[in-house]
C-alpha cells in the first residue's frame, strides 16, 4: 500500500470496494461505491430500514446509529469509512433488549407519533443514559438538540427519558438493598 494508482483516479471513481463490518453482532461483507453513505448502505444494501434518512446533512438526527459504541450520524459517513467497525442499528438495540424500557416508556407516553425521528431519539437517549445516570431535564434537552421531531413537541420525549432514568436508578438501588439483606 504505497499509495493510489493513477488508473484508480481516472476510472475507478465509481468502482465498488469491498467492506466488512460487524452489524448488530453479525459479520457482514458488501460491495459499496465510495460515495455511498452508511445510511444508504444500511437501508438499501443490508435492508435495515429502521435507520431513517432525513436531511442527509447532519441536521435532523434521524439517521443515528452506534459505531464502536458511540452515537454517530450515518448520513455523515461513507460506508467505506466504516470498514472494520462495529455498527449497531436500532434493529440490533431492539433485539438485544438494552433499550426495551426506553421503547416501552416512549410508547406509554406517546413520545412518538409518525415515528420518523424515533430511532434517532432512542439511539441518542441510550447514549445519554449510559454516560449520565440521572440527567436533568435541561441536560436531556441539550443532548437531544440535534434531533428534530416534527410531531410531538418534544415534551413527551423528555418525559419518557426522564422517567426511564429515574426508574433505572431506583432499580439499581433495589438490587443493591436486596443484595445487602442477603448477606
Amino acid at each position: 500500500m504505497s499509495g493510489i494508482g493513477d488508473d484508480m483516479l481516472v476510472d475507478g471513481a465509481d468502482e465498488t470496494m469491498r467492506v466488512r463490518f460487524v452489524v448488530n453482532g453479525r459479520k457482514v461483507a458488501c460491495e459499496v461505491a465510495p460515495r455511498e453513505t452508511l445510511v444508504d448502505c444500511l437501508r438499501n444494501v443490508l435492508e435495515l430500514t429502521g435507520t431513517h434518512a432525513g436531511c442527509e446533512m447532519g441536521a435532523c438526527g434521524a439517521c443515528l446509529v452506534q459505531i464502536d459504541g458511540r452515537a454517530v450520524h450515518s448520513c455523515l459517513m461513507f460506508a467505506v469509512q466504516a470498514d472494520g467497525a462495529r455498527i449497531d442499528t436500532i434493529e440490533g438495540l431492539s433485539e438485544s433488549g438494552v433499550i426495551a424500557d426506553l421503547q416501552a416508556e416512549f410508547h406509554r407516553r406517546n413520545a412518538l407519533q409518525c415515528g420518523f425521528c424515533t430511532p434517532g431519539m432512542l439511539v441518542n437517549a441510550h447514549e445519554l443514559l449510559s454516560q449520565v445516570t440521572r440527567p436533568s431535564r435541561e441536560a436531556i434537552r441539550d443532548a437531544l438538540s440535534g434531533n428534530y421531531c416534527r410531531c410531538t413537541g418534544y415534551e413527551a420525549i423528555v418525559d419518557a427519558i426522564d422517567a426511564v432514568a429515574k426508574a433505572r436508578v431506583e432499580a439499581r438501588v433495589e438490587v443493591r438493598s436486596e443484595g445487602g439483606s442477603a448477606t
Binding site: 471513481a13 465509481d14 461505491a33 465510495p34 460515495r35 453513505t37
Partner: peptide, 9 residues
C-alpha cells in the same frame, strides 16, 4: 448525493 470519487485509507 455526492459526485463519484475514489477513496484511499
Amino acid at each position: 448525493k455526492p459526485r463519484a470519487f475514489s477513496y484511499f485509507r
